[in-house]
Simulated assay, not measured.
Amino acid sequence: MADSSSPVRTLHKGQQTRATILEAALTLASHMGLEGLSIGALAEVTGMSKSGVFAHFGSRDELQIAVVREYHHKFEEEVFYPALREPRGLPRLRALFDNWVRRVAVEIDSGCIYISGAVEFDDRPGPVRDALVDMVQTRQDALERAIRIGIEEGHLRPDTDPAQMLFEVHGLILALHHDARFLRHPGAVDRATVAFRRVLENYAAPGALQESTAPTRKRTAPARAARS
């Protein structure tokens, strides 16, 4: 029988403890913002000592950065990876938006760390702001890449400006967060969906929308789409 104090078992337990702390930190940050995080608050929530929490992260900055990365990982798992299983072009772009809207709907009662973090760190240089910018830019790049693929597939007009379309689609997400979470407007999700359809109508190549009107969630993507 393996010794319970073996380095491997100790490492595994340490990883589990860190994951538990990180999950609690993510929940706190979603409701209170990254600035609401502290070693003391996490110690209280997790029932650990401050020194125990500190041993896993070392500093408040490291804790905040770890939360940003964990949030981004969950965002990818819920929004981007499922969309990659859709066919290239409009089906994938629609899936990205649909998945994103569903995530926003869940975040109405908590909050988006990207948005709250942008307010907290917009004029505060440092490693936490750098991590936020890096993650948000990664998200933006993925959406712009989906738009460019839409052009390559002939679903979007060849004169489409990917950066402009990205700006408009991202603007819808920000407006949805504002109206759904801050103003509590009950029709915000429907308005965002209608607005996205109008963006597609503005940029779609002739006939492209009619060829891809089936709901994205019912599509079965070919194996190559997940690797594209």
Rank of each mutant, 00 (worst) to 15 (best):
E78Y: 13
L93Q: 03
V104M: 11
E35P: 04
T17H: 02
V189E: 10
T27N: 13
W100G: 01
S59A: 01
A214D: 12
V68Y: 04
L90N: 09
A205E: 14
E78A: 15
R88V: 15
R191P: 03
S212K: 06
A226V: 05
F80I: 15
V68W: 01
R217E: 11
V106Y: 04
D98L: 02
L26G: 12
A146N: 01
E77A: 14
S212P: 00
D190W: 11
G111P: 00
G171N: 05
A208Y: 05
T160M: 11
F196M: 12
L22G: 06
A41Q: 11
V104R: 03
T160Q: 12
K218Y: 12
D109G: 13
A175P: 01
D123A: 15
M48Q: 12
V79A: 01
V67D: 03
Y71N: 13
D122M: 11
G40N: 12
R157F: 00
S228D: 14
V119C: 04
R157C: 05
D179Q: 12
I65Q: 10
H72D: 14
G89S: 12
A142L: 10
N202M: 05
L132H: 05
A192N: 02
R139L: 00
D109T: 06
T216A: 15
Q16S: 12
V136S: 09
G36A: 10
Q210F: 03
S110T: 15
H73L: 13
A25F: 05
T160C: 14
R219P: 03
R88D: 05
D190Y: 12
R69V: 05
I65S: 05
H12S: 09
S38I: 06
H177T: 01
E35D: 13
D159P: 00
T138L: 06
A24G: 02
V194H: 03
G171Q: 04
P186T: 10
D130P: 02
R9I: 15
R92T: 11
A118R: 10
E152T: 13
R18D: 11
L166M: 03
V106F: 10
L166A: 02
A192C: 01
K218P: 02
V104Q: 07
E86W: 08
E107C: 06
G58R: 07
